[in-house]
């Protein structure tokens, strides 16, 4: 799409900056009702430090793509590399943190123990665990809630705790699957601006699945528009919004222009399969 993408990605090669590189990626689920094509010929490069949103209607494969990066699903065709490794190698080297749609906190662990979970599994020392818990809880503004159990926290705070858990082991890549989808709009706005600050502070590469156009435009440096049946990429939009983004940037003409282009992309993808109005 943009000049930089084309320059940095001559066909079939990846630059050293590429964190994620998908080439002709396809994934077909075999079900009792026949094959379901979840991803078809996806080509995409995501560079270090980018904030990439995946947007599209249900069934467009955006979550499947994220799960494929995380080695939670296996592609059936094409290639996918993460930091030059296969998804499995990347997972084994703990290359990414994953934030699910639901907080998925373990109810028998306190918030700090939940954040310690990946650290325990990865074998960090107790003092190292404590330092990381403190740092990530500060980062998501949850200090003071260390000893609380998940049920004692609101939905927004639980999701913040799950982000802290994904950040605690310092993977450079953060995969987020509609993390704020179940939250109300006020909490969501707040968490979105928090997330941008966090991204600026940590310099991580973030892949963010959403079905909200304003959320995608507000957060991203790159927006990947996908469409269903079969799941494929229909547009990749580079955002030229400034990196400093107050919430009211959403009323500026630049913002609305990008939002309009995302909407066009979604509509184009929809008219393709004909059975939608």
């Amino acid at each position: 799409m943009s000049v930089t993408t084309e320059l940095s990605n001559p066909a079939g090669t990846t630059t050293q900056d590429a964190v994620i590189s998908a080439r002709h990626l396809g994934l077909t689920f075999k079900t009792n009702d026949g094959d379901v094509v979840a991803l078809s010929d996806v080509n995409l490069t995501i560079n270090k430090g980018e904030f990439v949103s995946f947007i599209g209607p249900s069934g467009c494969g955006k979550t499947t793509f994220l799960r494929t990066i995380a080695d939670l699903e296996q592609p059936t065709s094409g290639t996918l590399t993460i930091n030059g490794m296969t998804p499995e190698q990347a997972r084994q080297s703990r290359a990414y943190g994953y934030v699910f749609q639901a907080p998925a906190l373990y109810p028998w662990r306190t918030i700090e123990k939940n954040i310690a979970l990946p650290l325990e599994i990865m074998g960090h020392s107790k003092s190292e665990q404590d330092a990381r818990i403190k740092r990530t809880m500060d980062l998501v503004n949850l200090s003071g809630f260390e000893k609380k159990y998940p049920w004692q926290l609101s939905g927004g705070m639980q999701q913040r705790a799950s982000i802290a858990r994904a950040l605690s082991f310092d993977a450079d890549l953060l995969l987020m699957d509609e993390p704020f989808g179940a939250l109300d709009e006020i909490v969501r706005d707040h968490l979105n601006s928090e997330l941008l600050k966090l991204w600026a502070a940590t310099q991580k590469t973030i892949c963010f699945v959403t079905h909200s156009i304003p959320e995608a435009v507000y957060l991203s440096t790159k927006i990947v528009v996908m469409s269903p049946r079969p799941g494929r990429v229909t547009d990749v939009i580079e955002s030229n919004l400034p990196s400093e983004r107050p919430l009211d940037i959403r009323e500026t003409p630049e913002f609305l222009e990008i939002a309009a282009r995302v909407r066009d992309g979604l509509r184009a993808g929809h008219s393709y399969d004909g059975d939608h109005v």
Binding site: R91, R94, Y96, Y98, A104, I121
Partner: peptide
């Protein structure tokens, strides 16, 4: 355990024991 709780363990590359 729910599917996402198990997926979470998978993303950490946790052993069956863990």
């Amino acid at each position: 355990p729910e599917a996402i709780q198990l997926d979470l363990m998978h993303t950490y590359n946790a052993s069956a024991n863990q």
